[in-house]
Design a protein around this nucleic acid. Structure first.
Lengths: 206, 206, 206, 206
DNA sequence: TATGAATGAGCGTTCATTCAT
DNA sequence: TATGAATGAACGCTCATTCAT
């Protein structure tokens, strides 16, 4: 029963995690009850404790951000074929998919928890991720716009774009009726196109 | 302890609100206890209920966003002497003041609560505020950049800038070490300057 | 200020007691709050404590049964001119006056309190009152029906009539739509008339 | 402690109800605490809430009058073999059993609560029960005494007898030393016998 | 190993009582 | 002496956690 169990155990663990994420994002970590999570996962409350030592641990793991595929792309830009514009567009388009708001809520709550507890580990993780993504953004900017970035604070610009991304998520959550992420991005891209000169820029590539 | 002046009562009320804001932003609304808030305010738990009917009401009022002066400026741009660039700078500079993070936490939690409960009132309020600010941003953009905005989706751009602002707040909270709001803004302003043509643009105004 | 105060003090004390009786009979002793009673009495909560040491004392005194005039008549039947039938009728007719239910509630609650706490004093008081009234009822029965009561357990009958009175109060409270006290009494009097022979009985008197 | 049988659950529920009835009748519903009831039932306070949603619900169910067998007899007089006199005697005799006072207290408190809150449901229930019993009493009176009731307000008389019953309960609670229910009833029955003529009356039946 | 009834600490809230004014 | 804001113990209730089954 040993080896097979191992796989089952892992599956069960993941299913609890997913149930928890659903409940957390809907109600918030504090308001969610273990009983609810158990029901969502289709097991008994007591069983959860075979897989997670406490609600806190479950929250910590259950809020570990959704493994966004797009994130990986930004973190490893060398392996990315598409240009900055296309990747941006895909990233922002994903925000308009159903379910994005749930992720945003979870991410925000997670951020809040980290900021409140001065949870160094979580904060560091976020910082590290930010660093990787920033590097990716800057890399792609440089690759696509080359010397036309001369005189620009590319890191500052990359950070601004990253902020813009988070802000778009946030506003989308709070005011679904406002101009959506994609429309915002288009306005920004028009700006960048104008700033970095004739459309040849990114087009040169290929 | 009878017949305390109206002013005293008001002061007490405000002091409770401030204590609550501190505790809420530190621990989150759900985790904060009335006992803690009372202690922070230097009174007994029961006394709070002379001023606020419930924890929920206290949370509602205690999280009512700090009356940011800057916000007013964006909402009434006709009365604003300074240009778009200057106002932006002031707005972002304020984010680097101490205490900004506290506000951001409170605002985020408030947003989360609203989004979770589908609290129509709060959501509407946010949406209305967003609308006013967007109008202000667009107004200032048009006033400062005039016909050079020809062909631009000014509303989309305004929304993008607003998103950028929120994102900057968020990132600042989560990764204090990253390029700060002001540096990000400078990069964006450089971009806008390049896009909207020779520096004369905003300068024309005088 | 001394002598005049004395009268005022007594008046104030009584007004508190009346306010308390009103609130107690409406909400019950446990649910009534000192603040409510104070408001009803038109004073401040703190002031009550100048006149009564505690809520319990206030309850004890405030529930001291309404000084029913009829009760006095039954307790001192020698001074009563009217016959048993007339006094009974007056007694039951009073139950159909507005306000009777409020008294009934208060009396019932008081009874409950006494029965619960095995409050010997209150229980004794009720017992003593019962004794006096029973004696009065028996006295009037014997005076009015004379030897026709031969062979009857007059004390048992008197007690039954007293029970009937209380039961009528109780049912009136719980089921206002049922045949009222007076109608019930009439049925009983018809029964007594039939049992004790030709109407001459009480009529002989004069 | 999982998968306890349905029977166990039912038993536990009933034991809580019994504990509650004991405490309620001893202290009154308002003064009784959940902790006390829990202790009386031999469980923890929290456990009660698996069986009852609130103290109020517990009170509602815990005060649901003891399913008196006698009551059923009065409500379905057609199925009753015994005559009015015998059934009355059984009913009043039951009042002298130990435990009757406990029930009376509970019933009185329940009545008070209903009257205070103007609890329409409870009041209606009481009214409906009263109606059924009254019908039963009148039915039995007519069956046993037949045409000798000519000229009587049978409904009024039935109601008077019902009031008498409640009053006897009440007085018994408050003044245990007074002539007991059975003795009172005997006096009343003597009266009825005298009023309705020669003993043949009920005897005719056979 | 899973269950889910039970625990009990801790929460929000109330209110009798006190006491500075 | 009256006021009424403040106290703080105690309540009803919740729920993370435990453990007998």
């Amino acid at each position: 029963m040993a080896k097979v169990s191992q796989a089952h155990l892992e599956a069960r663990r993941r299913s609890i995690l997913e149930a928890a994420a659903r409940v957390f994002s809907q109600k918030g970590v504090a308001a969610a009850t273990m009983a609810e999570i158990a029901q969502e996962a289709g097991i008994s409350p007591g069983a959860i404790y075979r897989y997670f030592a406490s609600k806190e641990e479950l929250a910590r793991e259950g809020m570990a951000g959704p493994a966004e595929a797009v994130k990986a792309a930004w973190e490893h830009p060398e392996q990315v074929e598409t240009g900055f514009a296309e990747l941006s567009r895909a990233t922002f388009a994903a925000l308009e998919l159903p379910g994005a708001d749930l992720d945003t809520r979870l991410l925000l709550e997670r951020a809040l928890v980290a900021a409140r507890d001065e949870d160094a580990a979580l904060l560091d993780e976020f910082g590290a991720e930010l660093g990787r993504i920033l590097r990716g953004v800057a890399y792609l900017l440089r690759r696509d716009y080359g010397e036309r970035l001369e005189g620009y604070d590319v890191e500052g610009l990359a950070q601004a774009l990253y902020s813009f991304y988070w802000g778009a998520r946030f506003v989308q959550l709070m005011a679904p009726g406002a101009p959506g992420p994609v429309r915002q991005l288009e306005a920004v891209q028009r700006l960048m196109a104008a700033a970095f000169g004739p459309q040849e820029g990114p087009a040169e590539r290929s």
